[in-house]
Design a protein around this nucleic acid. Structure first.
Lengths: 266, 266
DNA sequence: CGAAATTTTGAACCGTTTCAACGGACGTGG
DNA sequence: CCACGTCCGTTGAAACGGTTCAAAATTTCG
């Protein structure tokens, strides 16, 4: 019911307004596949020229359009993706249509990296974009020859696991305001890591998608957004981008543990 | 507030009624550390005698008592544990005392395997038990020499990630009945994997701990348990063990996706 | 055995959901 | 260029599931 465009699989069928991937300028190595393999793995350092070349050979550069389905829950996990442009949502469905989005992917993120024989989730493009696609099989074979790469992936998977635990805390114990505040603070931090100022947050997803990520309803997301706006914590620039006016208050509302002592605001 | 016995750190101070770990009988190799290193990793096959011996040298066998704290959130992640007996809860706290249990550990489970520089959660023993403790540093060094072992750990971490995603679905979208049913079904499946019949489920944790795992309150867990009992789905043997009388109904209540068609009950 | 902790049950309360209606943005076609 | 339909977002009112508060029953443990 909920899945639209089930037929438009992620093949070579994406040909619309796909943004071009940012080039990787590390140490003179430039190009889309160096970009996805090296820079985004944060392993430019550990991979030699030989390793990079091998990775390039395995990669297929693909474009996708909004609503293209990249992987479907239960399908054999044959591919591994590195998103280089656009946004993707990763989700699970219950038989009666209830949906839980387990994560959003942005440039630099992996899809299908740590998984068993079959994908345990589905992934659908939110916007048009690009990705490097690898065969998991050959990728694993390459991994066996590049232990440093494997260690980097283990670390990356650890980060994913920690993020999942944070989401479990959010869904299990936080209020609606805390959830949205956490979400916005996380997006801001991400934007900062990607080189932004951490004040302007872009929201490529719909309110319904935010709701399905935060375990809420569209209406509650809308109401809470309004409340944050009224309190002067955020300011909506458009429906899909906002500015954080009061980062400290946002962090406070997010219930950031702050370790114990510092940042006592009152 | 919520942390009791913060002082009783996990050193050599556990000396009470610790059950002895089950021996590993794989291919004639017997002993506590073979047990934790090899059998529980499910890598008896991939590790040669040499690898097993090396692992043994790294392991310290430890006992713990109920309420001993094994790791604390924010502490440097210097150790890695393999639980060989007893039960452990892994949890995160918010500054105001709200607690979210992110998982329960039973014999065979790892603690601190996939983590960064610092533990992103705390872990406290629910009951007395034993564990193999490794230094993460030397463990990682050994991993570098045993690529098969590293691959096995990556797979294990993938399973953990998939379990976390299931918990996210549970917390984000399931009702109280579905949550408890899912929890019991999971414990039953786990018991089956450990050699049990999958009908008798042991609950070493309190109702409050179940509640903090399922994102509910103690009262709700109690009420829902009563409802399942009244409906004849389960039968309480003691407060901490029960028998699943109607596994099909339990699975239905758990909202098991069942892929799409079969098991249509009505 | 007695005190403390845990579990169960009841009743009132509340945050979020549900249901419903409205408004705005966008794309299509006249 | 505007009319129209659709999708998305916002807002309001009522309903509900789970929480909170309170107290009794049961279990655990010193």
């Amino acid at each position: 019911m909920a899945l639209s465009r089930l037929d438009s699989r992620f093949a070579g069928n994406g040909r619309r307004e796909a943004p071009e991937p940012a080039d990787c300028q590390h140490e003179g190595r430039v190009g889309p596949c160096h970009d996805c393999a090296a820079r985004q793995l944060s392993v430019c350092g550990v991979l030699g020229d030989e390793g990079l070349r091998r990775l390039d050979q395995l990669a297929e550069h693909e474009t996708f359009s909004a609503r293209d389905i990249l992987v479907r829950e239960g399908d054999p996990a044959v591919h591994l993706f590195n998103i280089t442009a656009g946004a993707v949502r990763v989700y699970k469905l219950m038989s009666d249509g209830r949906r839980q989005i387990v994560g959003f992917l942005f440039p630099g993120d992996f899809l299908g990296l740590a998984t068993g024989d079959r994908y345990p989730f589905s992934a659908e493009a939110i916007s048009a974009g690009t990705a490097c696609r690898f065969s998991r099989k050959s990728y694993r074979k390459l991994l066996a020859e590049l232990p440093d790469l494997e260690a980097a992936l283990l670390e990356r998977t650890s980060d994913e696991l920690a993020a999942a635990h944070n989401q479990i805390l959010l869904l299990g114990r936080k209020t609606a305001v805390e959830r949205l505040a956490t979400f916005l603070a996380d997006l801001a931090a991400r934007g900062r890591r990607a080189g932004g100022d951490g004040k302007i947050v872009h929201l490529p997803m719909t309110r319904a998608e935010i709701a399905d990520y935060l375990g809420l309803t569209t209406e509650t997301v809308s109401r809470v957004t309004t409340r944050l706006k009224t309190r002067g914590v955020i300011r909506l620039l458009t429906l899909h981008s906002l500015r954080i006016e009061n980062p400290r208050e946002l962090a406070r509302l997010a219930g950031l543990d702050m370790g114990g002592a510092e940042a006592g605001d009152g």
